[in-house]
């Protein structure tokens, strides 16, 4: 049992990562990763919402009428998100300004609803909570990697501590504007997916069609 719980917690980190395997929650991953601190805060918020959301749904799963289950799940998640948003605005106003609408948009984050619907509706309290935390951490892992890469190459800093001095301040580092634009997160997440699937070939999807290979005598 102990072993099983550990597996529930760690499987979503790499083997069943919501971002890199299920390709969910990409939108927020593009939007909040321009710097490491927003990525970390967003991660924390999503872990909280996922854990509490899955736990609550799991607790009342036997009382939810099947036909309105999505509405109930959304209500629970939305309540949690609003509470978290208020807490952020009270205690970390500046950061919450920079996260802007993306805290509110966690409601529509497919990972949260997906875990509630596909896991918490069918499993017990402990397993559901661990599953929520695990998926949150899996999402966080990718977010933090992307955020660190983008902040480092885009601004030459990490957590707002200047590591490389940009040319505008007399240093030799040239900020990469590309990294501050959303497409760069696509490239980085794509690179991470490629890296993981090279290590774990069982994650590679079968091709939908194949290109016809003509004989090539170039060798």
């Amino acid at each position: 049992m102990q072993n099983n719980n550990w597996k529930i917690l760690t499987r979503p980190l790499i083997d069943d990562n919501p971002l890199t395997l299920q390709i969910l929650g990409i939108c927020s991953a593009l939007a909040v990763t321009t710097s490491l601190d927003t990525a970390l805060l967003m991660s924390l918020v999503v872990v909280c919402v996922l854990a509490l959301g899955s736990a609550s749904v799991s607790l009342i799963r036997k009382f939810i009428p099947h036909t309105i289950r999505i509405i109930v799940q959304i209500t629970i998640i939305a309540t949690l998100v609003i509470v978290v948003d208020q807490v952020l605005q009270a205690y970390a106003f500046e950061l919450s300004k920079r996260l802007s609408v993306f805290v509110g948009l966690i409601i529509t984050n497919c990972i949260v609803l997906g875990r509630a619907e596909s896991y918490a509706m069918h499993n017990g309290f402990v397993a559901s909570t661990l599953d929520g935390i695990g998926n949150g951490l899996g999402y966080s892992l990718i977010l933090v990697i992307v955020g660190a890469i983008r902040e480092f190459f885009g601004k030459g800093s990490l957590l707002n501590v200047q590591i490389l001095i940009p040319q505008s301040q007399g240093g030799s580092f040239e900020p990469l504007q590309l990294m501050l634009l959303p497409p760069s997160a696509f490239f980085i997440i794509g690179g991470i997916i490629w890296f993981i699937r090279r290590r774990r070939p069982q994650q590679v999807e079968s091709a939908e069609f194949s290109l016809r290979q003509l004989e090539d005598s170039a060798k």
């Binding site: 040239e174 504007q177 590309l178």
Partner: peptide, 9 residues
């Protein structure tokens, strides 16, 4: 990519 990355230069 060069144009987007280094708009000034």
């Amino acid at each position: 990519i060069v144009q987007v990355s280094f708009p000034g230069a």
